Simulated scan of single mutants.
Amino acid sequence: MDSNDQEHVRSLIPFAQMPDDIFNSMIPFITLKTYAPSKMVFKRGDADLLLYWLMEGSVDLLDKSFEARNRKSKDENARYVLDSHEPHRLTAITTSNCRLALIPRSTLGEFSENLDAGISLDRTLEDDDGVDWMSALLSSPLFEFIPPANIQTLFSKFEEVEYAAGEVVIRQGEPGDYFYVIQSGRTKVERQIAGKAQLLAELKAGDNFGQDALVSDEPRNANVTMLTDGTLMRLAEPDFEHLLMAPVIETVTLEEANEMIAAANPKTYILDVRNPKELETGKIENSLNVPLLLLRKNMPKLITDAIYITTCNNGKRSKLAAYQLNESGFTGYVLEPNKET
């Protein structure tokens, strides 16, 4: 930390109120970190060992209703910690290139014992009802792709629907119409195979479902039934496509894919998500094959920091594969359908 940075940190609260000897003893524990735009600094509901001050740039602070308040480094309240609560009551997302000062919460706590009572760490007190469905959804890696300005619009489009135990929410074979997030209650996901119901999963509050049919434009591939009474939040297909899917799905040409593979920075693979029998008609040289229905099951075998470019015969399954990869924290692109073989 150079002298200019040290002077800036010294002006922040509570450092500005500390005796020199206490502030100087804290300097080794203070870290300055840079963030690109649209990055999540911390998330509502998370326990965090660090405290954050905005040195440069601007961030959006989102409360439990996803109402956003923008804080700029030039604002007077930028002298205060972004959110001192543990767990966090706010979500912080950068809206520009930012630099933040970080210090371990426990370190400041120890030194605070030497300070006058009443040092204010925070000016953003919020009512805390615990982690809700919006916080759970926001924790998805997908939200790294969503522009911060769109987040409030996205959540405003959800509508609340009550369901009774035993009620079917989604029927296998029907067209997709909504994306769902469970606000309360539990559901089961079953697939009919040869007339028999195969249990795929049980979902709880905070989990989501229904996106596969919307992304692939294929019929629903499973039944979803309420195990208990519950409340679901649903997002209509047009809003899902515009606000959630469009920022996530990015295409590349075969020429661009080959350039990425040759550069190998990071290592890049073409992932064919067709069934093995379909490969008899031909496939891209050196491509990997993981059928779409087995992709989620095989994700633990994939390389975390690699890039996967998905392909099929018409682009529908490859879009869903790329969505699933990005949803799970991987980096997935779609090979342009008219370039696929």
Rank of each mutant, 00 (worst) to 15 (best):
N4G: 01
N4S: 12
D5H: 11
H8W: 09
V9M: 12
I13T: 14
F15H: 03
A16K: 13
D21S: 05
N24L: 06
M26T: 03
P28F: 02
A36Y: 07
S38C: 10
S38I: 01
F42E: 12
V59P: 07
K64C: 07
S65I: 00
E67Q: 10
E67L: 04
N70K: 14
K72N: 15
D75G: 08
V81C: 15
H85W: 08
H85P: 04
R89M: 12
R89D: 11
T91N: 10
R99I: 14
L102C: 13
I103M: 14
P104K: 14
T107I: 15
L108W: 08
F111H: 09
G118W: 07
L121F: 14
R123W: 08
L138E: 11
F143T: 06
E144D: 15
F145Q: 08
A149M: 05
S156M: 05
F158N: 10
A164P: 01
V169S: 03
R186N: 07
K188G: 02
Q198M: 10
N208L: 00
D212M: 08
A222H: 05
M233I: 00
M233P: 00
H242G: 00
E250Y: 00
E255W: 01
I261V: 12
A263E: 14
Y269W: 14
L271Y: 08
N275S: 10
K277F: 11
L279K: 10
N286A: 11
L292K: 08
L295S: 06
N298C: 03
L302Q: 06
I303A: 11
T304L: 01
T310H: 02
C312V: 04
N313A: 08
G315Y: 08
K319I: 00
A322S: 14
Y323P: 04
Q324I: 14
L325M: 09
E336G: 00
E336H: 13
N338V: 04
E340V: 07
